[in-house]
C-alpha cells in the first residue's frame, strides 16, 4: 500500500516537472544561442592556443620563425570563429574586432 501510494505521488510530481516543457510548447526562441555557446568555447580554446604558443616562444621552445607561422595560422582560425560568431549578431568580424580594438585603446579592458 505504502509502495503503491508512493509510486502514484512520485509519478504525479515527476510528471509535473517533466511534462511542463511539452505543455508549454516550443519556447526555444534562441536557436542561435547554442551555436554561439559552442563558438564561444571554440574561441576560448583558440585564444588559449595562441597564449600557449606565446609562452613557448618566451620559453625558447619555439623559434621565432616557427612561432610566426603557428601564430598566424592560429589567428586565422580565431578570426574565422569570430566571423561566424559575429555573423550571428549581424556584425562583420572586422567591425566587431575593430570595436574591441577601439575599446581597448580607450582602456576598457573588461570589454569583449
Amino acid at each position: 500500500m505504502e509502495y503503491a501510494l508512493a509510486v502514484i505521488v512520485f509519478v504525479a510530481l515527476v510528471a509535473l516537472v517533466v511534462l511542463r516543457p511539452l505543455v508549454a510548447g516550443n519556447q526555444d526562441q534562441a536557436a542561435t544561442q547554442a551555436r554561439r555557446a559552442d563558438l564561444e568555447a571554440a574561441k576560448e580554446s583558440k585564444y588559449r592556443e595562441i597564449r600557449d604558443a606565446e609562452l613557448d616562444l618566451g620559453m625558447g621552445k619555439l623559434s621565432r620563425a616557427d612561432h610566426r607561422a603557428i601564430d598566424s595560422e592560429l589567428r586565422a582560425e580565431a578570426i574565422e570563429i569570430l566571423r561566424e560568431l559575429d555573423g550571428l549578431d549581424g556584425l562583420s568580424a572586422e567591425a566587431a574586432a575593430g570595436r574591441d580594438h577601439a575599446r581597448r585603446a580607450h582602456g576598457d579592458e573588461s570589454a569583449g
Binding site: 574561441k43 585564444y47 597564449r51 569570430l82 570595436r99 580594438h101 575599446r103
Partner: peptide, 20 residues
C-alpha cells in the same frame, strides 16, 4: 571569469589590429 574576460578582450583586440 574576470581574468577570462580580460584575456578575451586582449586577444580579440589583437585580432582586431590584424584585421583593420
Amino acid at each position: 571569469q574576470a581574468r577570462m574576460r580580460r584575456a578575451r578582450s586582449l586577444y580579440r583586440a589583437r585580432l582586431g589590429r590584424d584585421l583593420t
